[in-house]
Simulated assay, not measured.
Amino acid sequence: MTLLPQELLKSKAPSSRPVISLCEGSDPRIVAGALAAHQADLANVILVGDADAVRAELSSQGASESEGVQVHDPLTSPLTSKFAAEYHDLRKHKGVDEAKALTAVQTPVVYAAMLVRLGHATGTVGGAVLTTGDIVRSAIQVIGMHKDAAMVSSFFLMYPPKNATNGARAMLYSDCGLVIDPSAQELSEIAKASSKSCRALLETEPKIGFLSFSTKGSAKHTAVSKVAEGLALFKETAPDIEADGEFQFDAAFVPSVGERKAPGSSVAGHANVMIFPNLDAGNIGYKITQRLGGYMAIGPVMQGLAKPANDLSRGCIAEDVTEMIAVTALQSLNQ
């Protein structure tokens, strides 16, 4: 049985508790989710924002600042000048002078990312108020790309309902939240990153299905050719990872259909990593799985960064914040 992120994190019992920065530190959902994560011994948290507003929200929820629940105000923090110097070094080639650097790190989203870059936090979470663009931009500019990654992409962790049958299993869907129309090369890169995320967060070997509206050449179209080319590129660079396609979803998921449509494939009917051809398919696919199939969907989770940073939905609730803190903490243990 696949453990959910909170269960998996507790099972690992890291010797040093992860520290997660949250750039919307006065939002009631963020505070509630962060307090729950700390109380469950998942992580220590740093709430970033106007200190008076953050402390007022903590107080309204019956809590206060402590060693494991810190409050950082970028306008008054003793770290801000150091962060401004670092940001200036990072962005001066883009015309950012010292004054602009100071202004940038005084914004909570950049400050929270800089906490991660300089080792004061192991990961960061935001997006309850800010847009995905705000979160991704600050992560790429401040935290940067992983040395082995060619791009940043995202995925959803999909967990079946309890007592589910008929081959229901935990899966990873990518990309469902970031890359709108990936090229064949980008599909290959997304699959490589997703294979690592599968091992780290589902703790199982990836079986990667490259999805399409065609199975093994049953239809001819440039969209199908793109997926087939992405698979070929992936196999060239990751020959030891099980991957196959192109598959329609039923051929990737249902063993009997996989045997009939793709006989001899070890992935057909057993895929646990689904690579979607574009964001339309991925976003629609995860929501259908969630709403009709009863699966729990956690994400979008970002992959390809040097250190973890993740984006919340603006419609999130406190429980979503706690889950994403757990996911981010798990990612930090596997960097």
Rank of each mutant, 00 (worst) to 15 (best):
M145K: 09
P5K: 04
H38S: 11
S195N: 02
K196S: 09
S60N: 11
G95P: 07
R117G: 11
A101Y: 04
F247H: 01
K10H: 12
L90F: 01
N163Y: 10
R91P: 00
D89W: 00
K196P: 00
T76M: 08
I275A: 10
A34L: 12
V142K: 02
F83D: 04
V321H: 10
A306C: 12
L178P: 07
G230L: 10
K287H: 13
V267K: 11
H270N: 10
K287C: 15
V224S: 02
V227Q: 03
S64Q: 10
S15T: 15
T107W: 00
I325L: 02
G127I: 15
H120G: 01
Q248H: 08
L279A: 04
S60I: 07
G68K: 03
A40G: 03
F253C: 03
R55S: 12
E319S: 14
V227E: 02
M296D: 09
E229R: 14
D27S: 07
S218N: 05
G209W: 09
R291L: 13
A297K: 08
V125P: 04
A37G: 11
Q185I: 00
L4A: 10
C176T: 15
H270C: 05
I317N: 13
E229M: 13
Q185P: 00
H38A: 14
H146M: 03
P74M: 07
A271E: 12
N278I: 05
S194C: 05
D320S: 04
K207G: 02
K261L: 07
S154L: 00
N272Y: 06
V152Q: 01
D250H: 06
S59V: 13
K287I: 15
S154P: 14
A37F: 11
F213D: 01
A168P: 04
I298A: 05
H88N: 06
A326E: 04
D175P: 15
A99H: 08
T132W: 12
L211D: 05
